[in-house]
């Protein structure tokens, strides 16, 4: 997805960020977290906890009322102009009836890098073809997006993010409505991207497999309840503080066995 040249400073740097909506409703309060290059972080919390607000703030869709977000040392807007950020939306947020083909959608990942007439160059075409091959949707190129299965739809939008070749990838609920096979595929892709030096941020409700593919976890309940490496942070105490006791027990009874060793090898920079 990107060149593997080293970037040592934090790639995602959220410092003391708060969001309060115009109607007075509190989104998030005083959240600070940093993610290094080549890391995968799960953003978890109950409904209405502000995890999607945090995600939107990092993507620049929502302006923080105080604090700031830096991506590779730049403002969000600057980072977006350099195509350093890619975003995979929730399936519910997409208009599946829109008259565009799979090829058109994947090409939208290249939109910011094309010439002003938006005529795709050879590089643009190659990136799109490679991304589609990687997500195994090459033979669907001419399909209208509404005529795909749930798993295929997910893969189209992952391919779009891949084609963009960004350094930061934000995924919003990538595991809802996909079967176990696609789920494994997405986790494999996320691990692959991490090894290529991409910083991946995942908003998810699927808690039990967080230790399988994440090395950091951020628990949000308006404020940041806990943040750090999965091995030390994904614990009963923190989950209980975020979700309540019953929930934490059920999650951990399934997850304990799945926690891989590599998670402990990661530490917060």
């Amino acid at each position: 997805m990107s060149n593997s040249h080293q970037y040592d400073d934090p790639v995602v740097d959220v410092s003391r960020t708060s969001v309060r909506y115009p109607d007075g409703h509190l989104g998030i309060r005083d959240i600070s977290l940093t993610l290094p290059a080549g890391s995968v972080c799960a953003l978890i919390g109950p409904n209405g906890s502000g995890k999607s607000t945090l995600c939107k703030t990092i993507l620049g869709f929502t302006r923080p009322t105080s604090g700031r977000v830096r991506l590779m040392g730049m403002t969000v807007r600057q980072a977006q102009k350099r195509n350093l950020v890619a975003y995979v939306p929730q399936a519910e947020d997409v208009d599946w009836q829109f008259p565009v083909s799979v090829w058109d959608v994947v090409m939208m990942g290249r939109q910011g890098q094309m010439n002003w007439l938006r005529i795709p160059s050879a590089t643009d075409r190659r990136c799109v073809e490679e991304a589609m091959a990687r997500m195994e949707i090459t033979d669907l190129a001419r399909r209208q997006i509404g005529m795909l299965s749930g798993g295929q739809k997910k893969r189209v939008f992952l391919a779009r993010a891949l084609a963009q070749g960004s350094r930061v990838l934000v995924l919003d609920e990538p595991f809802t409505g996909v079967d176990a096979h696609t789920e494994q595929g997405i986790m494999g892709l996320i691990r692959g991207l991490r090894d290529e030096g991409v910083t991946v941020l995942i908003v998810t409700h699927a808690l039990s497999n967080v230790p399988q593919y994440c090395d950091h976890v951020a628990m949000v309940s308006q404020q940041l309840v806990a943040f750090g490496p999965v091995a030390t942070t994904f614990t009963q105490r923190h989950l209980a503080a975020t979700f309540g006791d019953v929930m934490a027990d059920t999650v951990l009874s399934g997850a304990e066995t799945a926690t891989p060793e590599r998670a402990s090898a990661w530490s917060l920079s």
């Binding site: 993507l59 975003y87 997409v94 565009v100 959608v105 939109q111 938006r118």
Partner: peptide
């Protein structure tokens, strides 16, 4: 005609348009 591609992206997915720097 000139802005076809950008207008299509804006109508389909304004968030993506913003993320890729438009």
């Amino acid at each position: 005609a000139l802005k076809f591609s950008d207008l299509r992206l804006y109508c389909f997915d304004p968030q993506q348009a913003q993320v890729v720097g438009l």
